[in-house]
């Protein structure tokens, strides 16, 4: 194959369009390919439930599900979402509370609440993968989520309750 063909087949426009499913709705957005998903969600798509924390994948505040798997939206670029199924905390905004959200409230597992959407999304990712995960599996699933209010006692009670079914 020639170098000319390479240039023609691979070149992109300055701001290409990307199509992906966002909370079940087909979404088309025109943006720089390397723009972070967390910025797309919060700024362009007006979905501020996904939080910005450390910005280097350490705190989990920006957790979303991509094709059902927990992913740090601060580390995900726009082009990496193309054709994917992206779910944010707003996607859980149904008529009744999701069982995970309900347990967070019942157990007082939040103080400032900034880390909570990320915690919930990480647990939802695991529950999509496994119907009845163990306590240890749940603990592992939120190992990438940090609570700075030291609310781990309440969060731990959520994991216990979830693992008890």
């Amino acid at each position: 194959m020639s170098g000319t063909k390479t240039e023609l087949s691979s070149v992109e426009t300055r701001h290409p369009s990307f199509v992906f499913s966002l909370n079940g709705v087909e979404t088309k957005i025109q943006t720089a390919s390397s723009r972070r998903l967390v910025d797309l969600l919060r700024t362009d798509l007006d979905l501020p439930g996904t939080k910005i924390g450390c910005e280097i994948g350490r705190c989990g505040a920006c957790m979303v599900l991509i094709d059902g798997k927990p992913s740090n939206s601060c580390l995900t670029m726009a082009y990496q979402c193309e054709g994917k199924d992206v779910e944010t905390i707003e996607g859980m905004n149904g008529e009744s509370l999701d069982p995970v959200q309900k347990l967070f409230l019942e157990e007082g597992a939040l103080q400032c609440g900034y880390c909570t959407p990320g915690m919930v999304m990480s647990l939802k990712g695991l529950l999509k993968e496994k119907e009845k995960p163990t306590y240890e599996e749940m603990k592992e699933s939120i190992s990438g989520n940090i609570c700075r209010c030291t609310g781990y006692g309440g969060i731990n009670r959520v994991l216990r309750k979830l693992s008890e079914g």
């Binding site: 194959m1 170098g3 063909k5 390479t6 087949s9 691979s10 070149v11 992109e12 300055r14 720089a32 390919s33 390397s34 723009r35 972070r36 910025d39 670029m77 082009y79």
Partner: peptide
């Protein structure tokens, strides 16, 4: 927020190498 204007997405190894 750091962005970049060009992301190339070749669909084979040869094209990727030529681009680089």
């Amino acid at each position: 927020m750091i962005t970049n204007e060009k992301v190339w997405r070749p669909d084979n190894l040869h094209d990727a190498w030529i681009l680089s």
